[in-house]
Simulated assay, not measured.
Amino acid sequence: MKYFPLVILLLVFKLSFGDAGNSYRFNLRLISNAGDTIQGYLYHNSYDNFNKFYHQDDAFKSFLKKDQVTIFEFIMPIRIGDVTKDATSKAYIKTVNLDEIKKITIIDFLEFNTSDRLLELSPEAFNIIKPGNPECKFISNQKVSTNCQYVLLSWKKRADLDRNKKEFTEKLMTDSKDMDNNKGEFNSYLEAKKKRLLYDGILLIYMCESL
Rank of each mutant, 00 (worst) to 15 (best):
K85A: 09
K102C: 05
F74R: 13
Y54S: 04
K130A: 11
T114V: 15
L42E: 01
L118N: 07
N51M: 01
N27E: 14
D67A: 05
S115W: 11
N97I: 09
I107C: 01
A91S: 15
I80C: 07
Y92L: 01
L119W: 00
N51E: 07
L110M: 05
F53W: 12
F63W: 09
D82L: 13
I71E: 09
N51P: 00
G35T: 08
F109W: 14
Y41M: 11
D108M: 11
L119G: 01
F109A: 03
G40N: 06
P77N: 07
T37N: 10
A59T: 14
N51S: 08
K94F: 02
L11S: 14
E124I: 03
F50G: 06
G81M: 02
I101Y: 02
L119P: 04
G21Q: 09
Q39Y: 02
H55N: 06
N27Y: 13
D36K: 15
A34T: 14
D67K: 08
D48H: 12
T114C: 14
R29C: 03
K14E: 13
V96L: 08
I75K: 07
I106C: 10
K90C: 05
F126C: 01
K65I: 05
I104T: 00
I80G: 00
Q68I: 04
K90F: 10
I31T: 15
L42A: 08
D116I: 12
D19R: 06
N113T: 12
R25Q: 10
V96A: 10
N127L: 03
F53M: 13
V12W: 10
I80H: 06
T70K: 15
L119D: 04
A34D: 09
D86T: 09
I107A: 03
Q39R: 13
E111T: 04
N49L: 14
D108W: 10
Y41A: 01
K103P: 00
I31C: 12
F109T: 04
R79V: 12
S46Y: 08
S89N: 02
A87Y: 08
R117G: 03
R117T: 14
L121H: 03
G35E: 14
I75N: 11
C136V: 10
F112K: 08
D57G: 06
I71Q: 07
K90I: 12
H44W: 08
T37M: 06
Y24S: 08
K103M: 03
Y43N: 05
Y43V: 08
K65C: 04
S115F: 12
L64P: 06
T95Y: 12
N97M: 11
G21M: 05
N27A: 11
F74C: 02
L10C: 15
D36R: 15
N33P: 10
L30Q: 01
N133Y: 08
L42K: 01
I107D: 12
K61V: 00
F53D: 15
K52E: 09
